[in-house]
Design a protein around this nucleic acid. Structure first.
Length: 595
RNA sequence: GGGGCUGUAGCUCAGCUGGAUAGAGCGACGGUUUCCUAAACCGUAGGUCGUGGGUUCAAGUCCCGCCAGCCCCGCCA
């Protein structure tokens, strides 16, 4: 419907200009705004134009009179009358617009053979960086990584669908002081590993990390060795680097299991990647005169952000011991991502998907990058924050024992619960299915439920995690959406040829028209998600589409329809399936034929 | 103390550039199956949109104050 909306916008502007030439001229370059918006209710048609209301005062006319004048001009426009039925003036002066049925049917027809479902591809797109997931080496992925990973992946998918070249970057924590203790511990417990390739399987990295941490806390000699090890690592000592590489490889393999399971593709580019560029960050800041030495640390003081004592807050880019910190790395990353190749990604949009607790940090770092002139004109640097994952008690999600919830346990439990649900349903319905069917459905439904529950909520608010709610078979959940697709697949199995060519579409039932209108919203929804980076908008849409489809399915027969109606109804089924499948795909959710 | 986010139905949440009588799901109550998977559909009840001002033809939405909850605040990321 975006094309139609654009056409209407132009026609409305033309009509307003002709109706009120003087006001138009006074309004300046932009002219008058028709305030075109989707109709707030179905009975108002497809669109509403509210632009008459604000003109009442300046024109000293009744708003309905103004609306009437605009409508008269619209009716004189042949392009408009071919597109719309006669406009209705309602309420205080809203202009309600209804698209001609044949134009809606034509839009549906044009989408039937279109893989993009009416979504226009971007032209001459520059790279977009989506920085997400970002676990720490030598630690396990836990519930804290869930939202970044799922939301980031979905945003990347939407941007890719639009045609942007997307760099999905995993900014893993693969550098820093904790490696001193890890390497020291590794060298002591598994010296063989450094000599022979694959000599040892580190096994449980979490346990390994815990042991190293315990020794670091308890043993002073170990502490000293660890500190020396950090210096050796940073100095490029080959053996230290080798130990570091082993730890990273091991972690990488563990992360990859989760990513494979979630069907998420990521390019690892950890913090260490930016090491060679850190000194240049300091030099660059010095050159533009932003750098200030304070308490021995190199800082940039922020504008408009003050601390406890009312003094400006600093971003520390070089510690008093000469070391760099995360702000330095983030600045180097920003610089690299916007810079031209070969030492840069030439991105024009850089998106960080991290929890909202880091908002302050990003405000500071972004301001420094901006003032240093590292953000090219016309490009965007965005923090996409999200809230905490909470348990049903409203507190931060923990296991019963009070530990952090491991991501793989969380996914396992979702799949197990989905399987138990499925088995009990099969029993109730006296259905029998092979084990591989049960495993496949349980796994698809379980993972879909986890992803959808997260994505369907506005990411800014905290998210209350509940297996029971996300796996519920009714309501705004993954199983409900998957079921709508299963119903369509059922029609195809029972003899409905969804790919049959349909020369002319004709619809008679209100449920058909409701479905048509819902299907045609897809392009606008994608445009909105691309702009606002809110996947829950796509979820809401897919849920509403499923509801409208289920109503249609329930109340309008497809396979038993007469020969006049059958092809058109099959076409609606096909487009519904394509839209749902594509939409769920953009959420990173795979679909089922039967469940 | 400063900053950020949040506050909408019993519960979990939508609410896009301010627009018509504030929406959905769950839960509650009632109904629908010789028919494409009832994991569905239809209906009923339920809200002073935290609070007090302000701007506007029009405020859940914008501005200011206050209250409550969560998060962040110099050398961790």
């Amino acid at each position: 419907m975006l094309r139609i909306a654009n056409a209407l916008e132009t026609q409305l502007r033309g009509a307003m200009q002709r109706a009120f030439p003087e006001a138009w001229t006074e309004a300046g370059e932009a002219g008058l705004d028709p305030q075109l918006a989707p109709a707030s209710k179905p009975e108002f048609g497809d669109f509403q134009a509210n632009g008459a209301l604000p003109l009442a005062k300046p024109l000293k006319q009744a708003p309905r009179q103004i609306a009437t004048a605009i409508v008269e001009q619209l009716q004189a426009d042949a392009a408009f009358t071919q597109l719309c039925l006669e406009p209705q003036i309602a309420g205080p002066g809203f202009i309600n617009l209804t698209i001609r049925p044949e134009r809606l049917a034509a839009e549906v027809a044009s989408r039937l053979g279109d893989e993009r479902l009416g979504v226009p591809p971007v032209q001459g797109a520059a790279p977009v960086v989506v920085d997400f997931s970002s676990p720490n080496i030598a630690k396990e992925m836990h519930v804290g990584h869930l939202r970044s990973t799922i939301i980031g992946d979905s945003l990347a998918r939407v941007l890719e669908f639009r045609g942007h070249p997307v760099l999905r970057l995993n900014h893993v924590g693969d550098w820093g002081t904790q490696f001193g203790m890890l390497i020291t511990h590794l060298k002591q417990v598994a010296p063989d590993a450094l000599e022979t390739a694959d000599a040892i399987d580190l096994g449980d990295l979490v346990a390994f990390y815990r042991e190293a941490k315990k020794r670091f806390d308890d043993d002073e000699a170990f502490q000293t060795t660890s500190r020396e090890e950090v210096v050796k690592l940073q100095g490029g000592d080959p053996l230290s680097l080798k130990a570091w590489g082993l730890l990273c490889d091991q972690s990488r393999r563990e992360f990859q299991k989760i990513y494979d399971r979630l069907d998420i593709r990521l390019s690892e580019r950890g913090e260490s990647f930016y090491n060679p560029f850190l000194p240049a960050v300091i030099d660059g800041l010095k050159q533009v005169g932003l750098l200030v030495t304070d308490d021995g640390a190199e800082c940039v003081f922020l504008e408009g952000v003050s601390g406890k004592d009312g003094k400006p807050l600093p971003v520390i880019v070089q510690k008093s011991d000469g070391g760099f910190n995360y702000a330095t790395t983030d600045l180097a990353a920003i610089r690299y991502r916007f810079a031209a190749a070969p030492d840069g990604d030439a991105a024009r949009r850089v998106i960080y998907v991290t929890d909202s607790g880091q908002a302050n940090h990003f405000v500071g770092v972004f301001q420094v990058a901006e003032r240093a002139g590292w953000i090219p004109d016309g490009s965007r640097l965005e923090h996409v924050p999200f809230g905490l994952v909470q348990g049903e008690d409203g507190k931060k999600l923990k296991t019963r024992a009070g530990d952090t919830v491991r991501l793989r346990d969380l996914l396992d439990e979702a799949v197990e619960r989905a399987e138990a649900d499925l088995r009990s349903r099969l029993q109730d319905e006296e259905r029998s299915e092979p084990e591989n069917f049960i495993n496949h459905v349980a796994s698809t439904v379980g993972l879909a439920a986890v992803k959808y529950a997260d994505l369907s909520q506005n990411r800014i608010t905290n998210y209350q995690f509940s297996f029971d709610r996300m796996l519920a078979l009714q309501g705004n959940t993954a199983p409900y959406l998957l079921y709508a697709l299963v119903r369509i697949a059922g029609i195809a199995r029972k003899g409905g040829d969804l790919d049959a060519s349909t020369a002319q579409l004709q619809f008679s039932e209100p449920q058909e028209w409701a479905l048509v209108r819902e299907l045609l919203r897809f392009d606008a929804v994608i445009a909105e998600v691309e702009e606002e980076l809110l996947p829950n908008r796509l979820c809401s849409y897919l849920f509403e589409l499923s509801q409208v489809f289920n109503r249609f399915y329930d109340q309008v027969p497809v396979l038993k329809a007469g020969p006049d109606a059958l092809p058109s109804r099959l076409a609606l089924c096909r487009l519904s399936a394509d839209t749902l499948k594509t939409g769920l795909g953009l959420l990173g959710i795979s679909t089922l034929e039967r469940m």
